[in-house]
Computed example of a mutant assay.
Amino acid sequence: MPLQDVTVTIDVAYPAPRIGLGRPVILAQRTGAGTYKEYATLEALTVDFASGTEAYKKAEVIFKQPNRPDAVAVATYETDIGAALTQYYNRPWHFALVAGDTSADQVAATGFFEDKDFKFLAVQVKDDAGREAVKGKKRTLVFDHNVAGEHLDAAAIGNLGSLSVGSITWKFKQVVGVTPRYVTDTEISAIDEDSAIAYVVKAGRPQLSEGWLSDGQYIDIVHGKDWIKVDMENEVQNVLAQAEKLPYDARGINAIEAAVTTTLLRGFNNGIIAAKEDKTPDFTISALTREQSDIQDRSTRVYRGLNFEFGQAGAIHEGRVTGSIRV
């Protein structure tokens, strides 16, 4: 008997926030058996991780952000960061960070996420070699920052990760406690080619240079997909749990369709789903009737007949304006 009765699968047709969809976990190497603990304040974390530790340094930056998450988790491991990720993957966090910025552990962590389709890894590198080691990795945010003692990865996740999913693009955003860099065209081109993110001065203000993942997908698009999955699973699960019995007929199917519609409308209001020209949400839902459902599914009480599709809102990251002067 599965522990999860409702599963939402979303295929991207190209090639609230809920608790946990912005919460970070800091992966910290420490002698002894692995542990996982959540902290609502930096003071609470200090009991287990002194101010000089790498875990403390990341957490301190996160807690300084104006939009900091409700809590910061720390998971420890002795030698195998992948084992820690496996052990604690189902805990309520959504962004993982690597304390100490150790390249070998960063690479090992990216390997773990290559097999996942949920949650994110954020790493900070300081040079071309660091970017190259994690280039093109799935669900990985790569922050290029070479100012010693600063943690751009923690600042960005801490300030942006817990904002309403779909309401922002990560490009252009500011963070606290990080020195913006004045970079040359050559430097930013190299960073862009590796789909990494820097904190730069542009148009006279500090801002994140881009809002993408290491594989070139945009953070808000993939984060929005995660949000739709979690919210819809919760909505449909609630329908199943709150009914005395959900009949396998039009009544039950309509109830499930209504739950899916609720999530998609919420996703539209959050900015995940696009608006059509008439300003209505750009999504469609189709549902098989009882008679159209497979008889084996009916006998095992599994309904597979509902499908949905939506247009992603995306974001504008560049503008090209053309003008003319009259004589």
Rank of each mutant, 00 (worst) to 15 (best):
M1K: 07
D5E: 05
I10M: 11
A13S: 10
A13T: 05
R23K: 08
P24S: 15
P24I: 15
V25E: 00
L27I: 10
L27F: 09
G32L: 05
G34F: 06
Y36A: 15
Y36C: 11
K37L: 08
E38W: 05
T41I: 11
T46Y: 12
F49A: 12
Y56L: 04
K57T: 08
K57V: 05
K58S: 01
A59Q: 01
V61S: 11
V61F: 09
F63M: 01
R68I: 05
D70S: 08
V74K: 15
T76L: 13
D80S: 02
D80A: 05
A84G: 14
H94C: 14
F95E: 08
A99H: 13
A104F: 08
D105K: 09
A109D: 01
T110L: 13
T110R: 12
K116T: 07
F120A: 13
F120S: 14
A122T: 15
V123W: 00
Q124M: 07
V125K: 06
K126Q: 05
A133K: 12
F143H: 05
D144A: 04
H145C: 06
A154N: 15
S167H: 07
W170P: 00
K171M: 10
V175L: 00
T184M: 09
E187C: 03
D194W: 02
S195Q: 15
A196H: 10
A198M: 08
A198R: 12
K202H: 10
R205A: 15
L208N: 12
E210W: 03
G211W: 14
D215L: 08
I221D: 14
H223D: 13
K225T: 05
K229F: 02
N234T: 11
E235C: 09
V236H: 10
P247W: 12
Y248C: 00
G252P: 04
I253A: 00
I253P: 00
A258C: 04
T262Q: 07
T262G: 03
L265Q: 08
L265S: 01
R266K: 15
F268A: 04
K279M: 03
F283E: 02
F283N: 04
T289Q: 07
D297K: 07
S299H: 14
V302S: 05
F310L: 10
G311K: 15
G311H: 10
A315L: 00
E318I: 00
G323Y: 13
I325L: 11
